[in-house]
Design a protein around this nucleic acid. Structure first.
Lengths: 218, 218
DNA sequence: CTGATTTTAAAACATCCGTTTTAAACTTCT
DNA sequence: AGAAGTTTAAAACGGATGTTTTAAAATCAG
């Protein structure tokens, strides 16, 4: 009965490394040690398999995020103080990187999420947007409340900057492909996470400046 | 003789939309209105074609970046003042987004670069890293000089945050796939670019805080 | 035990892929 | 005009892909 889990684990690992298109059913089933037909038997199709793999990780992750964000809103209502931008970002960023460390035995599933952010396949993108939509909307609402002086579109794009930065380090951190770039840095997850939170908090709270204050020739 | 250009334009567009693996030779040649065999005749292989497509855009772009960065260094040497972080980031970010607007007739090649950042294919990644290496090293050096109080690994990761944020908006901006998320925002490129520069400048200059100043339950 | 479900093995399916080949037409330049 | 280079058309290549089928074996629940 754990054939499904074996398949999901193998799919998660291969998909996070090579992307959707380049991960074949034969590679998945061989890596999982099961028969080729098992995937279609249990999941129906490759598309349904990758959807299951993404949901297995993204659903509980986003539930944690929403719970933490709701706790922040409640505390704000209780104390009458505005929620700090840094706490909002921390609620969004911390869970994915901490879960990464807490399950060392399993396949690296924060890489799966990092891959889902950017996989070029339309199927993957649609699944991902659907799974992220509730927490994304909540983030935008809370950031809007925390930064009332910023217009809606500025909040939106700054949130996208955060997403982009997070997605990048989810793929880079401890990824052998990028080891050559990282010299001898032995940065631990907590430091990297805190670094990202400080960076994005400062960026989120940066003032808007007037345009055309700087000429350029290109 | 402009068959090669037609092929490159078609490859650029399709590759930026669907990624390397999902862009077939047949799709490229049909979109370019040329024969299937023309790609192998002119370029030798699919891999060599995508390499040409990337080099065509990335080489002049990074030359502009390096030239602007060198001008900043020279000005700093001349005046004895430290180079501003914002000017460094502007030299890196502005060229790609401004070139995007200046050639409306051609295929959208900033999307090509945005895609190259994140395509899962190993071939694409190797080509991209090779083309980006010189300007990346220059950026790290200059950021290190501008922020002497930050350790090397913090500079490195913050630079990666910038890369991630930039790559994300290069793919999102004016991409029909993400239109539904952007409500009625009619943000122009200059505003978006300035927004990214202010965001990343603030993040780059953010102070480092001590660790473990915040408990969490997950 | 029995019946239902799960899993395996092996083969075949149609389809797509990058690439190559062949021969004929077209263009360009000397 | 003639040679060289370019482009087209059509077909085929070997291989990989997702999916399906068939039948036998293994597992498990009532």
């Amino acid at each position: 009965m754990d054939t499904k889990q074996h398949i999901l684990n193998a799919a998660e690992l291969l998909f996070s490394h090579h992307g959707y298109k380049a991960t074949s059913m034969r590679a998945i089933t061989e890596s999982a040690g099961v028969n080729l037909a098992a995937v279609n038997y249990h999941f129906g199709s490759k598309k349904a398999l990758i959807e299951s793999a993404m949901e297995r990780r993204l659903r509980p992750l986003n539930e944690i995020r929403q719970k933490r964000l709701n706790e922040l809103s409640e505390a704000s209502r209780r104390t009458g103080q505005k929620t700090a931008v840094q706490d909002i970002l921390r609620s969004f960023i911390e869970p994915v990187l901490l879960l990464k460390e807490s399950r060392k035995g399993e396949a690296d599933f924060s890489a799966l999420i990092g891959r889902a952010f950017i996989d070029p396949d339309d199927t993957v993108q649609k699944i991902f947007l659907r799974l992220m939509k509730p927490v994304s909307q909540l983030m935008l609402d809370m950031l809007g409340d925390a930064l009332p002086e910023l217009p809606e579109d500025v909040i939106f794009w700054r949130y996208q900057f955060v997403i982009g930065a997070l997605a990048r380090i989810m793929r880079m951190y401890k990824n052998p492909r990028y080891e050559s770039l990282q010299k001898a840095f032995k940065t631990d997850v907590e430091s990297l996470m805190d670094g990202l939170i400080y960076f994005t908090s400062a960026g989120m709270e940066a003032p808007m400046k007037k345009k055309n204050r700087h000429r350029n020739k290109y």
